[in-house]
Amino acid sequence: MLKLHKVSREFGSTLALRDISFDVPNGQFVVVIGRSGAGKSTLLRTINRLVQPSAGDISFDGSSVLNLRGDDLRRWRASAAMIFQGFNLSSRLSVLSNVLVGSSNETSQMRRLVGFYTRDEKLRAAALLDDLGMLEKAFQRAESLSGGQQQRVAIARALMQKPKIILADEPIASLDPLSAKVVMDTLRDINRKHGISVLCNLHSIDTAREYGDRVIALRAGELVLDAPISALDDSAVRGVYENAEEHPACGKVTSFCAPEFVTTVSSTDTNTRKQEQVA
């Protein structure tokens, strides 16, 4: 079980996360919603320890993961597998090499440096790729694949890590609807078949309702909703995404803002800035 207790994180003077506490029992599919900049990404990165919290505690199965260092930290990162919006694959390497990166904890540093992996390791990676329908692409460069295919490779890498929990940071934000469905179905399959908890940041409320067991909502770094997915009705959604005047940072993102909160000043602002960049 993953347990967060009063986790906070500040970047300079802005508070990205404030006193976040919740538990995730094994096998749950948790969706995390909130505006861009609300702290969703920071939350997942903090759990994986890509970001160090300023205060609070994170523990898994009863032992804290905040003071881990060196190999122990690497082992924790492997068991809390991250999946990114931008896939974060090494694009010039083959699909197979990218998946094998997930076996970092079972291979020596020397072997990883020269890129030597045993037949068994390769076969395990191949079986995972086969599960995801990507085996034929094993020897192609990652950059030659479509976005949806790259994300499936990233999932194979995550599974190669033998994860105890999967942290997916907006995994479908840059995919077309069909690929998005394949990726989300894959995450649900993994969740159901292997009982691995999934924490998934999402921008789309419909997708959240379709796949989640439970919803966690962040607003300006604070936990504003933690409930079964059935509680995510329209009024709850409005509560998460509205109240722009309380949160000046809101002008940045408008996809879920009600139109009246999108100030004309901020939108022309971004437009002129874009034009300047183009010029």
């Binding site: 197979l96 037949r119 390769k122 191949a126 079986a127 086969d130 085996l135 034929e136 094993a138 020897f139």
Partner: peptide, 27 residues
């Protein structure tokens, strides 16, 4: 399963075991 660097294998894998065997050979 047309793999790059000129190595081509012209077998249609039917089962998972066969697919893995093809992979193994290519690898």
């Amino acid at each position: 399963a047309v793999m790059n660097s000129g190595i081509t294998i012209l077998i249609q894998p039917e089962t998972r075991a066969e697919a893995l065997a093809v992979f193994d050979k290519t690898s």
